Simulated assay, not measured.
Amino acid sequence: EAAAAFEDMMRIGYDDMSAYDYAYSVAYQMNDEAKKLEYSKIAFEKFGTAKPDFLQRIISSYITDKKYDEARELLEKAIQADPKNGTYYYLIGVLYDDKGEKEKSQESFKKAVEIDPENAMANFSYGTSLIQQYERLDEKTGDMSQADYNKYRAETMNPLLKEASVYLEKAYKLDDSMNNALTNLKIVYYNLNDGENLKRVENLLL
């Protein structure tokens, strides 16, 4: 009944943005993906980028349905209209990450942070991508001697973890409810043998 009432509201053209949020919430609680997308599109067409959540919800629906071309096209249009909006590059990073194109996703997350250093999710995602890069490099070291591995780790791999720690710490500073940033920092400090920071992060997770 609530969904039907909100749909009547949309047909009339009611212009209170919060009402469109409530409509989306109803669709979310109904677990109705089609209505979530429909309501988000209507809201985005009406309000544009005045509220970024509307576009983010459309992109999320497209990615869930593996409609990558549609998501990319929409984001490219958004970037053309507002090239200094870091959220758009973050969303492109999410798109590439879902496709398994890790290098492209990392580039997009980095761009998002450069444009908007205070974006917690962009900081988290870029930091996490650096950990993933570390892990990919580690997978290729199986044939190395211990001495060569130690040198490669110190010169090439560990700097990635140190860089990752900067962005993950920033993400947690911006949003202290982001426990996944702390979880990833545990991975970083464990692999860097940084016992002091590891203990600090573990205490924050308690």
Rank of each mutant, 00 (worst) to 15 (best):
A34D: 15
Y167W: 08
D53K: 15
D15F: 04
E118L: 13
L185Q: 02
M121W: 10
Y149G: 02
F54N: 03
K151Q: 14
R136Y: 10
L130E: 06
I63E: 02
E118W: 09
E103R: 05
F6C: 06
L206D: 14
N191L: 07
L198K: 11
D175G: 03
L192T: 01
M17F: 08
S61K: 05
K66P: 10
A171M: 11
K36Q: 15
Y152T: 14
L55G: 00
F47P: 01
N31Y: 09
V188D: 03
N31P: 04
P83E: 04
L204D: 09
M10P: 05
Q132I: 12
K170G: 09
S105N: 08
L55M: 10
E169M: 13
E101Y: 07
A164H: 06
D16F: 11
A122L: 06
S61N: 11
K151I: 13
T156R: 04
D53H: 11
D15S: 11
K199E: 12
K41Q: 09
F54K: 01
Y20S: 07
D15L: 01
A81S: 12
I42V: 15
Y167G: 12
S61F: 02
S165M: 10
P117G: 09
A4Q: 12
A122W: 08
L205I: 14
E103F: 01
T183D: 09
Y88T: 08
E135K: 14
L130R: 07
K111F: 07
M9G: 02
Y172C: 00
K102P: 01
S105C: 05
Y96D: 04
Y134K: 12
K102Y: 06
A78Y: 02
N119T: 08
N85Y: 03
K99S: 11
P117S: 10
K51R: 14
Q132V: 13
Y167D: 07
S18H: 13
V94Y: 05
K140R: 07
